[in-house]
Computed example of a mutant assay.
Amino acid sequence: MKTLKKLGIWMDHSNANLIEFSDEVKPTRTISADFDNRDMEETLQRSENEMHNKQQHKQGSYYKDLAAEIRNFNEVLLFGPTSAKAELLNFLRKDHRFADIKIELHNADKMTDKQQHAFVRDHFKRFEIKTL
């Protein structure tokens, strides 16, 4: 029987915490978007249109980085307080390489690292098949 690789991602538009579900405890990895408030202020002074273009480009890079991680898993849980998880899901659905990966979305408030790990553990344990 093949072991399924499972990943939980707590995310908003600027940071994503990747939490691998496994028998051994693994540290949380973080991927951050490169676009910050300083970038926004600098480009906004020049042009609002330029700011939106730069922000979309940086957001696309952020989603590509997350997609590269997700490709290594069979099941993925996207959760967090913003619409970023739905935007990422739409981004992934455009690529046929993600068709066989089960991806679920859940709304969640801001959480501590421990709360994020517990959320991922509880989610995947709930659907685990018990063998006797």
Results as ranks from 00 to 15, higher is better:
Met1Tyr: 08
Thr3Gln: 08
Leu4Phe: 09
Leu4Trp: 05
Lys5Trp: 00
Lys5Arg: 15
Leu7Pro: 05
Leu7Ile: 05
Gly8Glu: 06
Trp10His: 11
Trp10Lys: 04
Met11Ser: 06
Met11Cys: 10
Asp12Pro: 02
His13Gln: 13
His13Trp: 12
Ser14Arg: 15
Ser14His: 15
Ser14Cys: 05
Ala16Trp: 09
Asn17Asp: 07
Asn17Met: 07
Glu20Val: 03
Glu20His: 02
Phe21Ala: 05
Ser22Asn: 13
Asp23Cys: 01
Glu24Asp: 10
Val25Trp: 04
Pro27Met: 05
Pro27Lys: 14
Pro27Phe: 03
Thr28Arg: 10
Thr28Glu: 11
Thr28Asn: 07
Arg29Tyr: 00
Thr30Glu: 10
Ile31Glu: 04
Ile31Ser: 09
Ala33Thr: 10
Phe35Pro: 07
Phe35Asn: 07
Asp36Tyr: 05
Asp36Thr: 14
Asn37His: 11
Arg38His: 14
Arg38Val: 15
Asp39Tyr: 07
Asp39Val: 01
Glu41Tyr: 12
Glu41Ser: 11
Glu41Phe: 13
Glu41Thr: 05
Leu44Met: 14
Leu44Ser: 10
Leu44His: 11
Leu44Pro: 00
Leu44Asn: 08
Gln45Pro: 00
Ser47His: 06
Glu48Lys: 11
Glu50Ser: 12
Glu50Ala: 14
Met51Ile: 00
Met51Thr: 14
His52Lys: 12
His52Arg: 11
Asn53Gln: 14
Asn53Leu: 11
Lys54Glu: 15
Gln55Asp: 03
Gln56Pro: 00
Gln56Ile: 09
Lys58Tyr: 13
Gly60Thr: 08
Gly60Val: 02
Ser61Pro: 00
Ser61Lys: 15
Ser61His: 10
Ser61Tyr: 05
Tyr62Gly: 06
Leu66Cys: 08
Ala68Gly: 06
Ala68Asn: 15
Glu69Val: 07
Glu69His: 14
Ile70Asn: 04
Asn72Pro: 02
Asn74Thr: 00
Glu75Arg: 06
Leu77Arg: 00
Phe79Ala: 10
Gly80Asp: 08
Thr82Arg: 01
Ser83Cys: 06
Ser83Trp: 03
Ala84Gly: 07
Lys85Tyr: 04
Lys85Gln: 13
Ala86Gly: 14
Glu87Phe: 09
Glu87Gln: 10
Leu88Tyr: 01
Leu89Asp: 11
Asn90Pro: 02
Phe91Tyr: 15
Phe91Gly: 08
Leu92Ala: 03
Leu92His: 03
Asp95Gly: 04
Arg97Thr: 08
Arg97Gly: 05
Phe98Lys: 01
Ala99Val: 09
Asp100Cys: 04
Asp100Ser: 13
Asp100Pro: 02
Ile101His: 01
Ile101Glu: 00
Lys102Leu: 12
Glu104Lys: 02
Glu104Gln: 07
Leu105Ser: 02
Leu105Ile: 04
Asn107Ala: 12
Asn107Met: 09
Asn107Glu: 13
Asp109His: 09
Asp109Ser: 14
Lys110Asp: 09
Lys110Gly: 03
Asp113Ser: 12
Asp113Trp: 02
Gln115Lys: 15
Gln115His: 05
Gln116Pro: 02
Gln116Ala: 12
His117Ala: 13
Phe119His: 13
Phe119Arg: 14
Phe119Pro: 04
Val120Arg: 10
Val120Asn: 04
Asp122Ile: 04
His123Gln: 03
Phe124Gln: 06
Phe124Tyr: 08
Lys125Ser: 11
Lys125Ile: 00
Arg126Val: 00
Phe127Glu: 04
Glu128Cys: 01
Ile129Leu: 10
Thr131Val: 13
Leu132Cys: 06
Leu132Thr: 07
